[in-house]
């Protein structure tokens, strides 16, 4: 069965997360990334963010994903770079890295799709002391249980949290200096949207999933949105 994530992979959608690539670049600008910084991009997708950090900051970048199509597209992208990105086929729930290795970990619409407790434990483990976690994740405000169920089953989310719940999870897993901000989908500026292309070989099934997705984001309006959060180990 084709899933929402398969559609993202098949269409090769770069920056498949709320706010798009312009939000990513804004976040990166505030991070003070140096050439000596070790960065982990979790769920790198087609690799746009990881490639940008490698080229722009010449930092030591590691990227992981588990979707075969995404990995293939990321691999092709990284092959053309002048600065390397280390790509691994691995899940955030069990990382093959030693502890206290990274200065910054980025998750762009990843934590909603995995076991949150396992992921946060692993992130905490591989972050250096005072290392930073930056994440952009789907969030909601006052959705009913039925609505939440409808959304999570369509997208394959493991959970759909409010800003306050995200914050509580981060505190619970030992993170400090937690800062969060919630943005409803309706406030998305056109500039923050993500370009994508439909070609002749996109199946009717994929187009239907795409259509359902667009319908859902409109249907729930201000109650569905995304949360940007940053915190420190």
């Amino acid at each position: 069965m084709t899933t929402y994530l398969d559609v993202l992979a098949e269409l090769g959608i770069d920056s498949a997360h709320p706010g798009g690539f312009s939000l990513t670049k804004n976040i990166l600008r505030k991070l003070n990334i140096q050439q000596t910084s070790s960065i982990l991009d979790v769920g790198c997708g087609t690799g746009q963010t990881a490639a940008y950090i490698a080229e722009q900051y010449r930092a030591n970048v590691t990227a992981i994903d588990i979707h075969p199509t995404m990995l293939q597209k990321a691999k092709e992208r990284f092959a053309s770079l002048s600065h390397p990105v280390h790509l691994y086929n691995t899940s955030i729930e069990s990382l093959p890295f030693s502890s206290e290795q990274f200065d910054v970990i980025l998750c762009e619409s990843v934590l909603s799709f995995v076991s949150l407790s396992k992921a946060l434990q692993e992130i905490y483990r591989v972050l250096k002391p005072k290392g930073k976690l930056l994440s952009i994740e789907v969030a909601h405000s006052q959705l009913t249980e039925t609505e939440k169920k409808d959304i999570t089953s369509f997208y394959g989310f493991r959970h759909l949290l409010t800003e306050q719940q995200w914050e509580a999870y981060l505190h619970k897993n030992g993170f400090h200096k937690v800062q969060t901000a919630y943005h409803p989908v309706m406030q998305q500026r056109v500039l923050a949207a993500t370009p994508f292309t439909i070609t002749a070989d996109v199946s009717e099934e994929m187009l239907t999933i795409l259509h359902t997705h667009e319908h859902m984001t409109k249907q729930y309006g201000r109650r569905l949105g995304y949360c940007i959060f940053s915190c420190e180990k």
């Binding site: 909603s112 949207a193 994508f196 002749a200």
Partner: peptide
């Protein structure tokens, strides 16, 4: 005559 259509959207 269409080969592809590019659009913009919002994705999770």
């Amino acid at each position: 005559a269409i080969a592809a259509i590019a659009l913009i959207g919002l994705f999770w």
